[in-house]
Write a protein that binds this DNA or RNA. Structure first.
Length: 397
RNA sequence: GGGUCGGUGCCCGAGUGGUUAAUGGGGGCGGACUGUAAAUCCGCUGGCUUACGUCUACGCUGGUUCAAAUCCAGCCCGGCCCA
């Protein structure tokens, strides 16, 4: 069994995983394990679960997970990256996003015990200018510019705003406020976690240990998993689409996914990459739903490939009643595709049809003008776009 | 604050008065092939429109013109240099 300090861990600093082992073995109280959360995006995907899994492992050992909702930083608006300043969130939006976050994180974390949650506005909003100046005085411009994003943007003559320098400090101050023993974060957070150590030191606290988890590479096999890249698997996704996506993760990613997203022993994996993909999909869907539904998803996937669209069950569905309220009948197939969300626009839907990417009841449709007079004609029909998206049209409830 | 260069579609980047929804590349999507992968090849890549068209788009606002992403004015924003 790989220890908590090793599996799914890129780096522990300072001192490496031995330092964490030592801390775990020599402390006879629950450690305070910090995880900062950005409340701007409520949709969690598997990439987020990597670090959440790690946090859960600490919980299971009896330590305290301290979840910090970064509502204050979100209210300020973080212009990180080349894009323009992000829209500032209202307190209501933050509260809503945080709630959504909790609901989703519940699938991974233990919310019944060993958990604390905080909003960082509780302490950050109270800082006055002299305290902020103290924070700023702990770092130099040169140190700030050592940070990856800043250095690159500065080098590439991209704008770097002064208030961006405040973010690492605010995030670091969170560690002081909650007296973190260990902070978790993705590898891209290294700088920020290190600032937390510095500030704790300045405030006379014992600096936290920092544990970095790998960034999960998305389904495209190149970029990190993110919603905006569309290369993600959402944790609230229908189990069928979850299965369909995971069943074909790029070969190069399979072993990493097993390591970071399951607890399966790598030595027990099947030889064939194809079988590995299936096992991966099965086990992850099993975690978020249940093993029976995972099996069902696998069965459906197989039936679909073989064209047995009538043998499917428990597929993502779309009610024809609802469809009628969105598009008047007689309706063009393209309009139906848009209404069901299978295509982003009717123009796009037409292009997909002409490109041969749309199937109804397992048969390719190539006539973009095809229309249906009555919704009843579509009851029980499987509508597919490409290989990844499909819906079963059902009579209304 | 002064000087200078610049702001084009998801990204990069052409275009400097008119067949320009706007060359090209990347990315993305779809198809063929395959292991529902990778690689390769092909197609598509602003919205609406049951296809006749139409609306919106080149930082913002106004102007010149039959006609502007392209010319003019003001404004906003950014890089660099100087202070």
């Amino acid at each position: 069994m790989t220890p908590i300090s090793k599996r799914g861990v890129t780096e522990v600093f300072p001192g490496g995983s031995e330092a964490l082992d030592l801390l775990l073995n020599t402390t006879n109280r629950p450690l305070r394990i910090k995880l900062g959360v950005d409340p701007t995006r409520p949709d969690l995907h598997l990439g987020h679960t990597v670090v959440l899994n790690k946090l859960r492992q600490f919980q299971d050992l009896g330590h305290t997970a301290v979840l910090i909702i970064g509502d204050f930083t979100a209210l300020i608006g973080d212009p990180t990256g080349r894009s323009e300043a992000r829209p500032r969130l209202t307190p209501e939006e933050v509260a809503f996003n945080a709630q959504t976050y909790f609901e989703q994180a519940r699938k991974v974390l233990n919310f019944e015990a060993n958990l604390e949650t905080h909003y960082n506005s509780a302490w950050l909003a109270k800082l006055d200018l002299s305290q902020i100046t103290d924070l700023l005085a702990t770092m130099t411009l040169q140190q700030m510019l050592a940070k990856e994003g800043f250095r690159e943007r500065y080098g590439q003559q991209q704008p770097v705003y002064l208030h961006e320098f405040l973010y690492p400090l605010m995030q670091g101050y969170d560690s002081v406020a909650i007296r973190a023993d260990v902070e978790l974060g993705g590898t891209d957070q290294k700088f920020n976690l290190a600032v937390g150590r510095d500030l704790q030191l300045h405030k006379g606290q014992k600096p936290q240990l920092c544990l970095l988890t790998p960034l999960l590479v998305g389904l495209d096999g190149v970029k990190k998993m993110s919603k905006s890249q569309g290369n993600y698997v959402g944790i609230t996704e229908h189990f069928q689409s979850m299965y369909d996506k995971l069943e074909k993760v790029p070969d190069a990613l399979i072993d990493t996914y097993f390591q970071l997203l399951t607890s399966i022993d790598p030595a027990t994996l099947p030889e064939s990459p194809r079988e590995r993909q299936k096992l991966l999909a099965l086990s992850i869907v099993g975690q978020f739903y249940d093993p029976d539904l995972a099996q069902q998803a696998q069965y459906n996937a197989l039936q679909r490939v073989q064209g047995n669209t009538t043998a499917l069950s428990q597929m993502p569905e779309f009610s024809l009643d609802q469809l009628q309220t969105l598009v008047p009948f007689p309706a063009q197939l393209a309009q139906i595709l848009k209404a069901t969300g299978l295509a982003p626009s009717t123009s796009e839907a037409r292009k997909l049809i002409q490109g041969g990417g749309v199937k109804l009841r397992g048969e390719k449709i190539s006539d973009p003008q095809l229309k249906f007079d009555r919704p009843e004609d579509l009851v029980g029909a499987l509508l597919e776009v490409g290989k990844k998206k499909s819906l079963l049209l059902v009579a209304g409830t």
